[in-house]
Design a protein around this nucleic acid. Structure first.
Lengths: 168, 168
DNA sequence: GCTGAAATCTACGTTAG
DNA sequence: CTAACGTAGATTTCAGC
């Protein structure tokens, strides 16, 4: 899925009180916590808690609930970051290239960047031959691509979203 | 949380059949789908489905269930990628620096890299002044840091894990 | 908007194929 | 390993504060 556009959204500014933030933090940590337990932990009744969770979902604060999958279990044990520069005359093709890349099963994340590089692609692959093949097929073969640089990922950590640590 | 180490794990190799993969794909899309619906969609009985989901959880295929939170709703509307190079004589401090960075609320992801750069940090911040302050305080002030480079993120896309598209 | 109780539905252990 | 049954407990609606 995609993050929401970062400008000129929010018809009504989203206001979250301490209970909302506590709910968010707990659901981020465990999306399947029973509503009754969640309610007790944040200090409201189950029905109130349910109404708040729904409101958060409807206002787009909670984007979705997802299961984190261990990619190694699926046979993809290697990760790499590939930075890509598009030829200056081909910048109008960036949306199309992005759409094509996102259909490739190896692509885990895609960043559009400002600065000297245009894309950063986070891929999950079987081995180094696989990443080489990915670059050749999906990037080097495209005449709009000016330059690529591949870095292997040794470790990858993800953290709780900003602004939620203090309520845990 | 952290991805599992990428080498020498799996006492027993994890084998997943088509039903397991279908379950994984649906739980990745919606971690809160009722077991009864999940069972119907993948074509097994609810009790069988529940047993499979548990097994996937116990074998570490499903790492956890999490709610994706819209960072913009929390007031963090700007994203940046910061690449960091550590001084060659200070490489032994990398673990310590990593641990310190991960306690900062702005840090969403942290990559340990091979190649010319050592770290890549994905941060979520309020504005450009905030990211500048982050770099000054957490990186430039550290004598082990040789070089940093900050790129603003215009868009960020995340995709379904590799190997699951075909079963959807 | 919050609370508490009633009805519906789900999860999950047990039994059996 | 898989399917069916039964119970305990959760979710969700609704009336009242």
């Amino acid at each position: 899925m995609t993050d929401l556009p970062q400008i000129s959204e929010q018809p009504e500014p989203i206001v979250l009180d301490a209970i909302d933030r506590a709910i968010i933090a707990r659901l981020h940590d465990n999306a399947r916590i029973p509503n009754i337990d969640l309610a007790r932990e944040v200090g409201v009744s189950p029905s109130t808690c349910l109404a708040r969770v729904r409101s958060l979902r409807e206002r787009g604060v909670i984007i979705r609930y997802t299961a984190e999958i261990n990619p190694a279990a699926l046979g993809y044990t290697l990760q790499a970051l590939i930075s890509v520069r598009i030829r200056p005359g081909a910048r109008h093709l960036m949306e199309q290239i992005s759409d094509e890349l996102r259909t490739e099963p190896e692509v885990a994340q895609l960043f559009f960047l400002g600065g000297s590089e245009d894309f950063l692609i986070h891929v999950r692959v079987r081995d180094s031959a696989h990443v080489r093949q990915f670059v050749l097929k999906n990037l080097s073969a495209n005449p709009a691509v000016a330059l690529t640089e591949t870095n292997l990922v040794f470790e990858h950590h993800t953290a709780l979203s900003a602004g939620l640590r203090t309520v845990l």
